[in-house]
Simulated assay, not measured.
Amino acid sequence: MNNKILADTASDLSEQHYNELDIKMVPLTVHLEEKEFEDGKTISPQTIYKAMREGKSPKTSQASPQAFKDIFTSYADSDQALIYFALSSELSGTYQAAKLMEQEVKEEYPDAPIYVVDTKCVSIGLGLVILRAAKMAKEGASVEEIMETATYHAEHMEHIFTVDDLEYLYRGGRVSKTAAFVGTLLKIKPILHVENGKLVPLEKIRGSKKLLNRMLEIMEERGTDFENQTIGISHGDDLETAEKFAGMIKEKFGVSHVEIEMVGSAIGSHSGPGTLALFFLNKPYK
């Protein structure tokens, strides 16, 4: 019996990924117009982006602790190893909820092979880590091998992204109201990255034409071994720009595989429509 990988929907993986690699999924919660939805199950990203374009403000909350308890208990009961690679603990309480339920389940099943990992990653940056782990699990790798390789990928995963409207980051508490107003007025495009699991501003670009080229420059400065890894791109309902960007990456770096996915409802509720995010390793693929 192979080891099982658990992912949350902040990984922005598609249903095809979950099915092909037998990944178990736990949804984050999205709140819209006083209704509660399960990300990836009962609400689509397009619904969220449409609502945001209409001026609505969706909210999110961590995955249900009870969902974790039910999942962990079922695997503990069958004595099958389960490794949960969580969204960065700096961006959500989901990791803490999972750790709490892990401890609770292990009070009844002290030797349960349940493992919870804080990846410090998000979106397809997290998704690429999970895909690597799931492929290893499917090939029969041990828990130790999976966790060592996946942790290496998580530690060396670069997240470079921009948003279409700073207002969305303001609503999520990421920038001040003044910065959001001035940025929108001057058509400033922020470039941000993830540092120790937190969203951190990197630089500002005036005008969208320079933006993709600057993101490519940052990729060249920070990344390595592009030919051997899968590059990730996630987008906030802007497939055309994502595909254009993927073509630029393939041409510049000789990359053979770029994974393009839409930013899901949970992450998209904070980043907004028009988000473009780039993910790659800054150390050789393992």
Score class of each variant (00 low, 15 high):
Asn3Leu: 06
Ala10Thr: 14
Ser14Trp: 04
Glu15Val: 15
Glu15Phe: 14
Ile23Ser: 08
Met25His: 00
Pro27Lys: 01
Leu28Ser: 00
Val30Cys: 05
Leu32Val: 02
Glu36Ile: 11
Phe37Lys: 04
Gly40Thr: 09
Lys41Arg: 14
Ile43Trp: 11
Pro45Cys: 05
Ile48Met: 04
Tyr49Asp: 03
Met52Val: 00
Met52Lys: 00
Met52Ser: 01
Lys56His: 09
Gln62Pro: 00
Pro65Asp: 14
Thr73Glu: 13
Ser74Ile: 14
Tyr75Val: 11
Tyr75Phe: 15
Ala76Asn: 06
Ser78Trp: 01
Ala81Tyr: 05
Ala81Trp: 07
Ile83His: 01
Tyr84Lys: 03
Ala86Gly: 10
Ala86Met: 05
Ala86Pro: 04
Leu87Trp: 04
Gly93Ile: 11
Gln96Ile: 12
Ala97Tyr: 10
Ala98Leu: 05
Lys106Pro: 08
Asp118Pro: 07
Lys120Ser: 12
Lys120His: 14
Cys121Gly: 00
Val122Ile: 14
Ser123Gly: 00
Leu128His: 00
Leu128Ser: 00
Arg132Pro: 01
Lys135Leu: 06
Lys135Phe: 05
Gly140Asn: 06
Glu144Cys: 06
Glu145Trp: 05
Ile146Lys: 01
Ile146Asp: 07
Ile146Cys: 08
Glu148Ser: 13
Ala150Gly: 10
Thr151Gln: 08
Tyr152Pro: 05
Ala154Leu: 09
Ala154Met: 07
Glu155Pro: 02
His156Leu: 11
Ile160Arg: 01
Ile160Cys: 03
Phe161Tyr: 12
Thr162His: 07
Val163Ser: 09
Asp164Ser: 09
Glu167Gly: 00
Tyr170Phe: 15
Gly172Glu: 02
Val175Asn: 08
Val175Lys: 01
Ser176Thr: 15
Ala179Pro: 02
Ala180Glu: 05
Ala180Met: 09
Gly183Leu: 01
Ile188Cys: 03
Leu192Val: 07
Asn196Phe: 03
Val200Lys: 00
Val200Met: 02
Pro201Asn: 06
Leu202Lys: 07
Lys204Cys: 05
Gly207Trp: 02
Lys209Thr: 10
Asn213Gln: 15
Glu217Thr: 15
Ile218Met: 07
Met219Trp: 01
Glu221Leu: 08
Arg222Gln: 13
Arg222Asp: 04
Gly223Thr: 04
Thr224Trp: 02
Glu227His: 13
Ile233Arg: 07
Asp237Trp: 06
Asp238Thr: 08
Leu239Asn: 04
Leu239Glu: 15
Ala242Ser: 09
Met248Gln: 12
Ile249Thr: 07
Ser256Glu: 13
Ser256Asp: 12
Ile260Glu: 06
Ile260His: 03
Met262Asp: 12
Ile267His: 01
Gly268Ala: 09
Ser269Glu: 11
His270Arg: 05
His270Lys: 04
Ser271Leu: 15
Gly272Lys: 01
Gly274Val: 01
Thr275Leu: 08
Leu276Cys: 11
Ala277Cys: 00
Phe280Gln: 02
Phe280Lys: 02
